[in-house]
Design a protein around this nucleic acid. Structure first.
Lengths: 201, 201
DNA sequence: GAACTATTTCGATAAATATAGAAATAGTTC
DNA sequence: GAACTATTTCTATATTTATCGAAATAGTTC
């Protein structure tokens, strides 16, 4: 299990912000610190409700309170928002191919139908869904982080099918591999694992 | 009303991602396009449930579908995630002071207690909550977007209290004003309005 | 066009939770 | 310490919604 213990934290973060009143509270706190009563009056909802929302925001690490005389002054933790925003940006820059190494029933079926026992591709399916299975199958022949010359790439692709140009084009088209502008170097642009998808139960 | 018509969109975005199964689906689609059935099998939930989730993800602009033979192949809209991440980053860089011009009951009371009728500050409250009201009160004397020399800043602050150094320090400390490193220029670092807080009802 | 396939829609149910009022708590002021 | 204040906790209720099975739909294959 990779960095997946953060999954629950992500869910909490989004769920907490996915409620109109709470998002408004965050908006208020983004402008300046507030007390519970101030928020309740501005939003025209009960204090106990506000307290409840602040408690959930606090659980998610989005706000923090500070006692001051009678009042609890709540502040926004801008860092929490910033961190999540950066995490999201990082994620969107790295497509992945997880699941390629333990195929489900459908993928097994497609591989059984369209590849030889040694892995060579017998024929290309027209359905994109099936074709993608084969592209990912070919991708497993390449190491993440390694740069391949086009010549070496073609040698490896030739183990799968004589139409190496087609395979090369598909790998790039589906963003499984990147190509350097000039020198003709290729490399995998995925990562071992992105967000949690392995499951909870 | 500023750019607040996006409020509902923000809520939908966060709410949609704040559900474990949907977040897992996003994780799957971040790796590769999937059909409804594939997702259902991987997550061990019913197809109709997956279809429902995909529908909500689609409403939020997070995924898009493409018909292909029997199947609907769903893809992640990475741009939607990227855009939101960038919006969040932008927001966290701009604290604001909205609400300073129409004070609520509490702020009125504080201002009545601690300022003269001409706006001068009679005394400084020790409670931070009340002190903040005065800091924001002083801030209204400055125009957004205008750069002030320290000399001019002190002239204006002197209209509120002789302890101009304290006021200047507080304005910077609470991030209502920024100071340029060398030349001693000051300016408001807020914006007219950030996320929606004005209200939906 | 008939048979078939994946997906979507519909209807119903169970679980999660936003909300508010009342009671309890923690802390301040005099 | 007594009176007071804001906040939190508790209890209950109403709303939202995740989930599934069945029926309806849209599209493909032969």
């Amino acid at each position: 299990m990779p960095q997946l213990e953060h999954f629950d934290h992500y869910v909490r973060f989004f769920k907490v912000l996915g409620e109109p009143q709470r998002l408004k509270i965050v908006g208020l706190l983004a402008q300046s610190p507030h007390t519970v009563e101030q928020i309740a009056k501005t939003l025209k909802i009960g204090v106990s409700t506000v307290s409840h929302h602040l408690s959930r925001l606090s659980d998610a690490g989005l706000v923090s309170a500070k006692a001051e005389s009678y009042y609890s002054i709540y502040r926004l933790n801008s860092e929490a928002l910033r961190d999540m925003a950066r995490t999201l940006l990082r994620q969107t820059e790295k497509p992945t191919v997880a699941g390629a190494e333990n195929p489900d029933a459908f993928e097994r079926k497609v591989l059984a139908t369209f590849t030889e026992s040694d892995g060579r591709i017998k024929a290309f399916p027209t359905q994109e869904k099936k074709y993608l299975v084969l592209v990912r199958h070919v991708l497993t022949a390449f190491e993440p982080g390694v740069h391949y010359t086009e010549k070496r790439l073609n040698q490896i692709l030739a183990n799968y099918n004589e139409d190496t140009a087609r395979l090369r084009r598909s790998l790039v088209e589906y963003h499984y591999m990147a190509r350097e502008g000039g020198g003709g170097k290729y490399w995998r642009i995925d990562t071992p694992a992105s967000a949690d998808t392995s499951g909870a139960d």
